[in-house]
Design a protein around this nucleic acid. Sequence first.
DNA 1: GTCTATACTTCGATAGAC
DNA 2: GTCTATCGAAGTATAGAC
Lengths: 190, 190
Amino acid sequence: MEWRILATAAELFRTKGYAQSTTRELAGMIGLKKASLYHYVESKEDLLYEISIQSLRQIDGDVAAAIAASAPADALRDLIKAHICSALGNRDHHAVMLSELRSLSEPRRQQIVKARDAYEARVRGVIVAEQAENRLRSDINPKYLTFALLNLLNWTIFWYQPGGALEPEQLGSLLASIFIEGAGAAGAVT
Amino acid sequence: MEWRILATAAELFRTKGYAQSTTRELAGMIGLKKASLYHYVESKEDLLYEISIQSLRQIDGDVAAAIAASAPADALRDLIKAHICSALGNRDHHAVMLSELRSLSEPRRQQIVKARDAYEARVRGVIVAEQAENRLRSDINPKYLTFALLNLLNWTIFWYQPGGALEPEQLGSLLASIFIEGAGAAGAVT
DNA sequence: GTCTATACTTCGATAGAC
DNA sequence: GTCTATCGAAGTATAGAC
């Protein structure tokens, strides 16, 4: 039951935003009255916290596994594909984690920020390693390469259409190619 | 006075989110009591609408001017720089427009979506033109190149530090290079 | 475990004095 | 133009019956 509440809350929060979502509406989506929700959940904010922490545990685990199983030369491409597949596979959770952080009150907000930073450090670690192997440009501070990559990846969930032309894995490959090879025509006179 | 209210509201909404911001707090930041605000403003939502529409007018105008003054071969790079400079120069407005759209009620929400789509179409237009001139890869649907570029650009305002190492124009050049040339080491064996 | 009823708080917005 | 006072609505959460 708890899992059902969490999944429904994630869907609701993603669609309407945390602050605009009411416990009454959430209960209604599950087929309960508002008060009955509090038999399972301590507070509305607990739901946001659980959604956020689960989202980060999931993507960090998925990406770590992908890297571990990957040949060094494929690490970055596999990271990108794993990130996209994980984020799109947990779209509601992930979108809520990304956009509703400021609605968490202080002890737990910092906890989510730390988990987010840890994931970011994992991504940066791969980028730094690729630079050391001369597979990524070294003329750009890895900090900016990491930001650029996370921009590219994170915000995809806000426009991706689940029934569209590209499966998550294809989209991941596409984004990996844009990030690594670039959008410029190879050999173009620029 | 109105401009001061709008700028303060944008700053407040960006920091705390629209729904979590109260008119009492906004009034306090200006040095007024809550009721006095309503001498200048009809409703809280009016502020959000004005912030959003101004943000889009600004960036669309800035980018259009940059393209018009640009040699064809530099159009995309100039677009990227203009986008970054405009967005960072109106950081509060732009961030609010990007992240608080769902708090607008229906007649005006669609209006903002339309303005956003129009700007997106402008960006896509340049990308399509660059493909036609063989300066951008044609093996990727321009729709995805546009999404990727806007991901890269739009979400930069959420981590950019105004006093950091890079000025907006430098950051724009950097992001242009990542998007066009890619992050991969030139000639690397991948 | 689910309900009705309600306590408690806070918000956006208004009324009306000055 | 700014204030104090307040209205009416809506929200989270709780009490207590069943």
